[in-house]
Design a protein around this nucleic acid. Structure first.
Lengths: 146, 146
DNA sequence: CCTCTATGTTGGTGAGACCAACACTAACCC
DNA sequence: GGGTTAGTGTTGGTCTCACCAACATAGAGG
């Protein structure tokens, strides 16, 4: 009952954006349990993988606007997950560093995130998941500025 | 340069939500050219496909909260795309109807939307598009309350 | 030296999804 | 029939995410 219009269901953009709603809900349910949100995970992940950097670079890596990085780093710094200090060899730049507590939080969020991935793709076989990931990666790569 | 963390790229939820960003951008660029937004299209499409209904039912069909339907129907009614009148056989309910102008706007948005779909999936062959749509439909169906 | 670019920061906007509360109506049940 | 329950429209919020304009300031390049 209360069927959704064929005009919507047939559009790839509908499928993707609606599925993104469910994905975000699953992920955020986990993250809020850890007192965090998406931007936090992106930043912690980038710091762990590439080491300390400036906020601007962080934003470019995580696809987050530099003005939004400010707020997110504020929150992470206040929680002790990140350390923000002026870059010694550059007056204007900040140097954001992952703290041990931040690494711990990152690992915690990782397990929460893995559960969400599983819940998200539960109806698909391992093979189907692979093909879906492959196709999505191709399409996304095409739209990333690179 | 400025690579994105592997932790993100490997997550299906990242692929889906990031692709949804691009999808929304493509779609909205078209819609704003028509002075509209996503909610408007959903409502017009539902009215065209299922005929006049109440706002609550409209919301259930389009996956839009009933409080958000109020604002969207306000905008559509002010533009003359939709007619809102109290349901004669139900004191509380409203009866929302698609006007001729609304149908015209729907058709206009349809062509804009088709262009966006094409731009979105441009890197994929017809076959790959089919598979992607099929997989997305399956996953989405699993998460819809039905 | 002067211009151009990059950086951090503040303060907005907008879409979309969602929630709580209220007034009121309809439908249901005893 | 009367009281309870469920549904409807509406107001007024919240949150996340994405994005933009402006500004002060620092570094890099000519």
């Amino acid at each position: 009952m209360d069927e959704t219009p064929q005009r919507l269901v047939a559009k790839p953009s509908w499928l993707i954006t609606q599925l993104a709603v469910h994905a975000r809900r699953l992920v955020n349910d986990g993250f809020t349990a850890a007192g965090a949100r998406g931007y936090h995970y992106r930043i912690l992940a980038a710091l762990h993988e590439f080491g300390p950097t400036s906020q601007a670079r962080l934003g470019r890596r995580c696809r987050v606007d530099r003005s939004d990085i400010v707020a997110a780093v504020n929150e992470l710094a206040e929680a002790g997950f990140v350390d923000r200090a002026p870059d010694p060899e550059h007056g204007r730049r900040n140097r954001v560093t992952l703290t041990p507590n931040g690494l711990h939080q990152l690992r915690h969020m990782d397990t929460l995130l893995d559960q969400a991935q599983d819940a998200l793709l539960s109806p698909l076989s391992t093979n189907d998941r692979q093909t879906l990931i492959h196709l999505l990666t191709r399409v996304l790569a095409h739209h990333e500025p690179q």
